[in-house]
Write a protein that binds this DNA or RNA. Sequence first.
RNA 1: GCCGCCUUAGCUCAGUCGGUCAGAGCGACGCACUCGUAAUGCGUAGGUCAUCGGUUCGAUUCCGAUAGGCGGCUCCA
Length: 662
Amino acid sequence: MTEAGTTAGALLGSSPGDSATGNDSATGNDSAGSEAPGSKVIAARVNGSPRDLAHVLEDGDEVEPIGIGSADGRAILRHSTAHVMAQAVQELFPEARLGIGPPVENGFYYDFDVPAPFEPGDLKKIEARMRQIVKQGQRFERRVVTEDEARKELAAEPYKQELIGIKGAPAADSEESVEVGGAELTIYDNLDPKTGDVEWKDLCRGPHLPATRDIPAFKLMRSGGAYWRGSEKNPQLQRIYGTAWESRDEQDKYLKMLEEAERRDHRKLGAELDLFSFPAEIGSGLPVFHPKGGIVRREMEAYSRRRHEEAGYEFVNTPHLTKAELFETSGHLGFYKDGMFPPLEMDGAEYYAKPMNCPMHVLIYRSRGRSYRELPLRLFEFGTVYRYEKSGVVHGLTRARGFTQDDSHIFCTPEQLPGELASLLEFVVGLLRDFGLTDFEAELSTRPPKYVGELEEWAAAEAALKHALDASGLPYVVAEGEGAFYAPKIDVHVKDAIGRRWQLSTLQVDFQEPGRFGIEYQAADGSRQRPYMIHRALFGSIERFFGILLEHYAGAFPPWLAPVQVTGIPIADAHVPYLRKVASRLAEQRIRVEVDDSDDRMQKKIRNAQRQKVPFMLIAGDDDVAAGAVSFRYRDGSQKNGVPAADAVAEIVTAVRDRLQV
RNA sequence: GCCGCCUUAGCUCAGUCGGUCAGAGCGACGCACUCGUAAUGCGUAGGUCAUCGGUUCGAUUCCGAUAGGCGGCUCCA
């Protein structure tokens, strides 16, 4: 039972006063001695709401500790670090006006209105000043203010004034809510620990760390422009991103992960491994695949094709260009024109590069009368589409202007819809698993503000998707208002080898397009009915999926996808003919094998094959030739010597056939 | 599209506060070496310093535009 008048901190055995008074910052909080760095209590949950340790309790309050290393604790730590950064910025750039400064995943940011954008050197200066503030141990102190008081105190901060005006309006989970999300307006003062003077203050909901000294590790990452309140109609502020952690170790781990991500960057690996490029002469966002990338892509497509065949899909082909009329009928030119390349004039007609394949597939459906006996009709195509992505968003293979969808449109009766959706989800996950992905999460996106169709149809489609998700057992979240303009959708996200989430598959129930094109089928009772239509792409885009796999595997594709599966390396030139014989036995089994007969020394050949991330090296010298054997060197550097050639061939063939990673 | 930064040989980069300033490593090519698990040695070729325009006696260097890239924002049907 809690006692009225005491603070949350005192109750939890942590005393915020200690670190703030500067007596001995270790005593109060580290009394347990052997505590892990992440378990230090820096705030409390009182009756379910996060509060400062200095929060005064009422009789009967439920109090739980918030450790600095917990999700809540990190958010508080990062939010406090954002305050320290803003203080440093305003000291160094007195003309800087404050935007918002919330914690975000892995860090925080703060937006500033400054006369000139920050330069890289500025971040260093700001960071240095922040370290002084942290060392000084300023106290965070909460103070409730009236709206009038807040306006007066923050008279010099126009953006804060605006936030005061919308108090309570932002959604509880919006980034603005950290400023004004609570029931009352509060200001946090940063106090000099010795004199108690107010060094800085900010409109803020809190809670905060007891003192700046409680920030164990932080680093400023980068700066860039950001629109005020996220709208391109608003002025652009300068945002500085930073990160903060409960210990130096955790921060180092995070920074290492970022380095690892950089090492895996598919744009870099694509060049190093000679897989693809983006010739400037062709245009931004338009990739070309080189022979080695072409092999990977062909394997991906071949496997997908096989699986689709087995799942009852029929294959179609459609052109890249179409008269405007098709996209007028589909509604794309009304709703999606900005995302399309401008039209070509020809013989007085306007032709567009297609941004989607669906209208063409609908025309195939409509090419003759359809019977209910044909449904579900599953039309599949590797369909290349062109979308006019804004110049600032093009990003390697993951955001291109021309790309190929593994696109399918399924036409079915209303009764068939739930079954189709359920089996589709299973199909998606099964296929992605075969590519070595294991961690999935779905997102159900509902009707957006700008949409076509009737509300009842939307409700029915959303219900069908939700039902399929519930049946699948996939974990999922609902994204309100994130659906396509013509349909709600399920997106399947995957986690890659270093824990990053990528959106891949998309699955949409469309009640609009069948009506727009007036497609029908004849039912068993002889009546004419409108089919339902499901849009779906599993890779999403082949290019994008290629990029994601490349990063997932850090370029070390499993043997079945690897462009070169085996490199033969002779100890000396004399062993080349022998290796060629072994290679031809592999080639007979459709293994992609090369023998390195260059002038390089054997060590150099190994280095080259290693850098090309070839899964198997087969080395042969006098000993091997005499024994009719070869020696393996695997991608991880391990070796297996004197393997009979037939066994070596079998081992490689098995690894490829079973899609093993090695 | 918006803000900032960037573009020197195939790649990674050095360099010029405007005047012998075209440099290195890797790669490519040639010659020698014939080698047991991540770089053999020597030599050769290769760049109108992204493009176009301006300032200047003189521009790779300063300014502007364009293209492409990078990091953010917005967007991602």
